[in-house]
Design a protein around this nucleic acid. Structure first.
Lengths: 231, 231
DNA sequence: ACAAAAGTGTTGGCTGTACACCCATGC
DNA sequence: GCATGGGTGTACAGCCAACACTTTTGT
């Protein structure tokens, strides 16, 4: 960046971005964490993050990190909030922009993840994390629950083709409580954002469950014509 | 800060915080803005903000700025989102944590505000703002609308004692549409978070409207016992 | 034939919304 | 006595929540 610095009488500091990466498999919500590779707190469990570079958007930094560790390029992610307490990082003054990401757990690159020393942990078996990362996880889970009610972001956690029992089980995992399958089906189908396919998935039952796809066009139309639906 | 810098091979940058300051008077939502005093874009209209200092929380920086300009110490504010595009500020690489604040417009220090060259503008008569501040205002308004539905933050914009017609008019200003006063009264009174006083405010009518106070204890209890109310 | 998961409808209660008139007072 | 804003009640509709049985098919 060859620009003049107009602000040089003020303080500069590090800006990091940390990603709270959710996945879903075997009816459980999982989180991707790894062991910190820099001092201080080297070796402690940590969210996946990176410092933001001078010539890089904060969002690009999150995308870069996600892509480095999972091998995925088009991951859904969104900003959570920024953690800016003066003493949050003993390494030096550093603020962190928390972002939460949703990953189709069957698509990520297992080798790449392992090469980086990263692991998927069940949400309720998470070890303690370094710095304020535990707080970030709590905040992200709250935001995921909030957002999943108003936008069908849950689909980001499932494969392209999925069954209704899978979808129900995902929402049960997000809200940590059992849902009534009849009511759930009624609601979700009435939105007209699912395309029923002619295939069945028989991996979980002899009868087999019909596969569905998400209908992006209808969803967009729904949003534009007054989005007052709740899942 | 006399600490060792563990991260010195990474980039440092400026961190600013900008406040989207809402007020309410004469049935209109207003925003506090001022003319930027530093290059580049000196003299252009801008939100109220400051660089964050090394030894200062991001939130403290926002509080400091609000207090400097309005003379108020206990202003309600909350984080909106962080604006981190690499090219957002031509002065140098600088990310900004946007925070929105709600102010009782009758309590702030008029002289102090004027001394800083700040003004209250009606939301729909706002001049163009510098950098990405227009976007911040749009985002803040959206968040204010969202949040006002689930938490009675609207009260932060009214004096300690207020009338129901005032409260209705505030919500009409926030949502930019007329509300049905009977339904609004029913809903808000059923929450049991208002204390009816024996005083009337006769400044707007000969009959006079009863004054109310916000009942913080009942509100807290309501929140704790499963907060499923919507205004 | 039986086990195991998938799929399907109805009802009652509650909540949001639409709607119009009387009340109190100062002038 | 009249003009102005403050305050009140009812009826209908739509939505959410509760609830149990039939279907399919592989073994």
């Amino acid at each position: 960046m060859e620009k003049r610095d107009y602000y040089s009488c003020n303080d500069k500091m590090y800006v990091a971005t940390d990603c709270i990466v959710f996945g879903f498999s075997a009816d459980e919500l999982k989180l991707l964490i790894f062991q910190r590779r820099v001092e201080p707190h080297k070796g402690q469990w940590s969210l996946i993050g990176s410092f933001v570079k001078l010539e890089e958007d904060v969002d690009s930094a999150a995308q870069r990190v996600l892509s480095e560790i999972t091998g995925l390029d088009n991951v859904y992610f969104d900003q959570l909030k920024t953690y800016g307490a003066a003493e949050r990082d003993p390494g030096y003054r550093c603020i962190s922009v928390g972002q939460y990401a949703l990953i189709r757990i069957d698509e990520y690159d297992r080798e790449l993840v392992e090469k980086h020393g990263a692991f998927w942990y069940k949400l309720d078996e998470l070890p303690p994390l370094c710095l304020d990362h535990d707080q970030m996880v709590r905040d992200a889970l709250k935001e995921l629950r909030r957002k999943a009610r108003y936008q069908p972001i849950g689909f980001e956690l499932l494969p392209e083709k999925f069954t209704l029992p899978q979808l129900i089980s995902l929402y049960e995992a997000i809200y940590q409580k059992p849902l009534d399958s009849r009511n759930f089906r009624k609601k979700i189908l009435s939105l007209n954002v699912l395309i029923k396919l002619d295939e069945k998935d028989k991996s979980n039952s002899k009868k087999g469950a019909f596969l569905y796809e998400f209908n992006h066009a209808n969803y967009k139309a729904l949003l534009e014509s007054g989005y007052n639906f709740v899942l």
